[in-house]
Design a protein around this nucleic acid. Sequence first.
DNA 1: CCTCTGATCCGCCAAG
DNA 2: AACTTGGCGGATCAGA
Length: 328
Amino acid sequence: MSAVPRSPHRVVAVVSDGAPIFDVAVCCEVFGIDRRDLVDPWYEFRLCATRPGRVGLGGGANVDVNIRYGLRQLERAHTVIVTGTVRSADDAPERLLDGLRRAHSRGARLASICGGAYLLAAAGLLNGRQATTHWMQAADFSRRFPGIHLDPDVLYIDHGDVLTSAGTAAGIDLCLHLIRADHGAEVANEVARRMVIPPHRDGGQAQFVRLPLSPPGEDPLSAVLDWALAHLDDPIEVADLARRANLSARTFARRFRESTGTTPLQWLLSQRLRLAQQLLESGDDPIPIVARKAGFGTTANLRQHFTRATTVSPQAYRRAFRGEAEAS
DNA sequence: CCTCTGATCCGCCAAG
DNA sequence: AACTTGGCGGATCAGA
């Protein structure tokens, strides 16, 4: 088709002193690996530091890495991801904070992983807004930045221009969320699959990713999905869901695929399997009751799906799970 | 394991 | 002209 490829979206990760090695690695893994077979062009990814050269990483690592790029990268980034620690706000060089502010006012998207929120806060980019960081630092963060409303119970918060994510592994959720926003749910799911992690996390009810301040106007889809999750035990038809969303079946299916990457029925099935697993693990209901509660109706139906997904029968799954629990 | 029925999904297209 | 919507029909899939 077009001979000229679009110029790649530039992602720059700021490696601040003592940043957890994991947080930096997550950025590299998600954005740094060449995935042109998925989306062409893929992201252009660079690590930068306030001063190029040796930077010490923490988070159990205690290693030095050699960062090639400096703060000039902030001037050309479309997305800036900030890593850091509790101390980042104290040590933050004015040059860095300035660079972050300039990138923001230029229209770049700024995101933090874990303690990186301290840097965004110090730069004043979170004032008056909701934000999150590692839950263990919640109290400290709130004390230091009383003007920022900290929500320690979410994986990440997306304001569109500024995003913050919670501790450690939530950084992965954030990065996948960015990909979902840029390239759609199917691409994000595929990246997750390649990283061998579940495509979206099930923080209890927060299946659809809890976005306290998602685009105002309330996504009609998430309300319907919440409803479905609460009614897994009775039969749900796709047409019902569409009606609840006030959309035609066709448009509902389309929207659904856009934001989840799967079809309504497949999604429903995976939710039911999850519920069944949970019931088998921690409940004492006989299998037929589990089948009913998880919305499979009959035992045969449950067994068919369960075995296909896990390669073990419901009964065997429970036994294996219980056996392990007793052994320990 | 097979078969049958109805539900679901998705490309296509016309209409806004 | 570019984009979204929703109806149609046939291939595919789920459940009994």
